[in-house]
Every structure is written in C-alpha cells, then in structure tokens.
Amino acid sequence: MSSTTTPSPVQTANPRYLWNEIVRWTFEACILRKEGREAKVAPLLQERLPELIRAWSSRCGLPAAACREQLTSLFSRVQESVELGFMQQRMIVNEVCARLGEQPKGARWPIPAQALGLRREVAIDNVSDMLDALGEAEFESMGEAILPVRRATQLPRELFAPEAEPSAAEAALA
C-alpha cells in the first residue's frame, strides 16, 4: 500500500519552491493574525509552516544555524512588511474617507458586502471596549473595500528565492 502512495508536494519539491511557499504562508499567517482570525492562523503555524520548514531545512544544504538565522530574518521582515501594509492601508482609507466626506450628498461610498465581526477579544462586561472594537472592525472592513491589505502590502522581492534554471532532477521532482 505504502509503496504506491503518491508523495506530497512537500516531500518532493525543490528547496526554492519550498522557500517561496514558506514566504507565502508566513505572509498569510501575519495578515490573518492582524485581522484577528486566530482560528485560521493556528493550522498554519502548527501544521503547514512546520512541515514546509522541515522539508526546506532538510533539502537546502545549509547548516541548521544558518537555516534558523534565515528563517528568523524572514519572519521579522514579513511582519514588518505586513505592519507597513496595514499602516499604508489605514492612511489611504483615512484620506479616501476624508475626501468622500467632502463630496456632495449622494456620492457613493465603497461598501463591502460582508458581515462585521470583531477582530479581537473583548470582555462581555466592557461594553465601551466592545463598541470601540466594532468601530475598528467597521473601519477595517471599509478599508478592505477601498484597498485590500494584501494589495497594500508589498513583500520585498529579495525575500523570495532567486529564479534559476532548475536542474533536470529538480524539474522532475517539482
């Protein structure tokens, strides 16, 4: 049975592909965490990323210490980029909202068609904080309609593995 099982992409892929997947899913986890979607972050941090990291570490040919250093640097740079993306989104949304506020009545606002959900936990007896969190969620929801944060966030190109012609063996594996 096991001899006929198809290996997963993680088991077969080349290190460049694996590295780029790590970049991509780290980015996704950071965005989801900023959006307060912890339930979606957990499987990424507990399953997908560890599996990718294990596979990449065993194939990249670097010593363990260098792997750790490269990963640590990646995590902090992706976090910085996401923080910057959210800041840019907030600035742009503020600007757009201010300009729309100056428009004559009847001007259309971009309205996202999605339900509103809190993006952080607020204790039940703290009504004031709940209302603040609702306001934040509404603003962020509006922000996503004006400029989705995944578009506002530019990951530096150098974070990704450089493009190179794969060897015949790598091409076969990929």
Binding site: R37, A39, K40, A115, G117, L118, E121, A123, I124
Partner: peptide
C-alpha cells in the same frame, strides 16, 4: 460562541 468575551469573526456562523 460567547465565552466571557464578545464573539470574534471566528466565533460566529451565519
């Protein structure tokens, strides 16, 4: 789900 805090986006289904 209401577990001491107001439901977040992940705590509700509609």
């Amino acid at each position: 789900l209401v577990q001491g805090h107001y439901p977040t986006a992940d705590d509700q289904l509609s």
